[in-house]
Amino acid sequence: MRVPSRSPGHQPGPAVASTAPAARRLPAGGRRTTAAPDLAAYRSAVAELLVEVGALADAPSTTARQVLLDQRLREPAVAAVLDATPQGLVGARETLLLEMARYQPNARSSAHDLTALVRIYLLSRIDVLWWRDSPTFLTDEQVRTSTELVDLEWLRRRGLLDFRYQEQPATVLGRGLRAVRRRLRPDATPRTAGLLFRRARREMIAFLNDLGREFAAAGPPGTPPLWVTSLARSAEHQYRLRRLGYAAMVPSGHCLGWAADVELAWYERFGARTTLAGLLLARQEAGEINVIDEGQAWHVCLAPAARRRFRRAYEAEMGV
């Protein structure tokens, strides 16, 4: 099984415009192809490309990297995926080159080097391919008020969640208390800023509940429950993260409501990291999710093929 590169990861990226797909030329004959791209072949090609990018990571190799990308992104397995995204192959290539030109490593970013940046960008295009017709949450207000999203806190208080999360402190006092707790018990929880929006699609809640139960059953004794570090967020917040130096790609599955970030690194101390990684990769191979290794946390995006099943699961679990 070909899986995403395990090279470490952490970084940022541009600004949002219209959510409408960019106009692209149709293939010869005037029709778009309807065959679904081969995602296994795409991931395999990306993994091979990353090895070559890693060998050209130094500053003097800028021209060589561009030539490499020009060649590799036009390979059939890669071009089929990129051309099916709203930007198309040319737009994806130009965006990736711009991201690489702007790249500055920093401690906040999940793209700790250029190789990780390329991996995160290219694998995140699967999310965009899957949900290209799904509307983007453009503003924070849209996330807070959308009827497509459910308040997690309401469910948590009723014992209906099989995963954990923490919210971002909203005040200076709250941030101070969080810092004190971390000093007193540095490993009690993952080192994450927490959720700005404690809201998620119903299908994502059902998926994370299902994963949380599976992890609880498979993990070593004493393993804490599944921890989610990010869910739905707005394009407005995505650009806020980019300005802070995070690898917040645009467009993003988070801004469509179909992605989440799951803590991985923290579970190393419980001997459960490999178990959780295996569960995620098995679900990816089954076509249920897309997975991106971003180092401390792994990005997951629900596949459209799994949407109906998890919507039904949510309704059954919540009695609606």
Rank of each mutant, 00 (worst) to 15 (best):
R2C: 07
R2P: 15
R2Y: 03
P8N: 00
G9H: 04
G13Y: 00
S18V: 05
A22K: 14
R24D: 07
R31E: 10
R31G: 08
A35Q: 13
A36E: 14
D38N: 15
L39K: 06
L39G: 10
A40Y: 04
A40N: 13
A47K: 03
E48A: 14
A57L: 02
A57H: 03
P60K: 02
S61C: 15
S61A: 15
V67W: 11
L68I: 12
L69P: 12
Q71A: 15
L73D: 12
P76G: 06
V81F: 06
D83T: 11
V90N: 10
A92D: 14
E94A: 15
L98K: 13
E99M: 08
Y103Q: 04
P105L: 00
N106F: 03
S109E: 05
S110M: 01
A111C: 07
H112T: 15
L114T: 11
R119V: 04
S124H: 14
S124G: 14
R125N: 12
V128R: 07
W131M: 07
W131I: 10
D133H: 12
T136G: 08
F137M: 07
L138W: 05
Q142C: 06
Q142T: 12
V143R: 00
V143P: 11
T147N: 09
L149F: 03
R156P: 11
R158T: 10
G159N: 05
L160S: 14
L161V: 08
D162E: 13
V172N: 07
L173C: 03
L177K: 09
A179M: 09
A179V: 05
P190T: 05
P190E: 02
L196T: 13
L196M: 06
R199Y: 02
I205P: 10
I205G: 10
A206N: 07
F207W: 06
F215T: 06
F215N: 04
A217F: 01
P220W: 00
P224C: 00
P225G: 12
W227I: 01
W227F: 15
T229M: 02
T229N: 04
L231F: 03
R233V: 08
R233H: 12
S234Y: 04
E236P: 09
Y239G: 13
G245N: 04
A247N: 12
V250F: 13
S252M: 15
H254E: 10
L256Q: 15
L264Q: 10
A272R: 01
T274Y: 00
T275F: 03
L279Q: 02
Q284D: 08
A286M: 00
A286V: 02
V291F: 00
H299C: 10
L302A: 05
L302Q: 02
R308S: 14
F310P: 08
V320G: 14
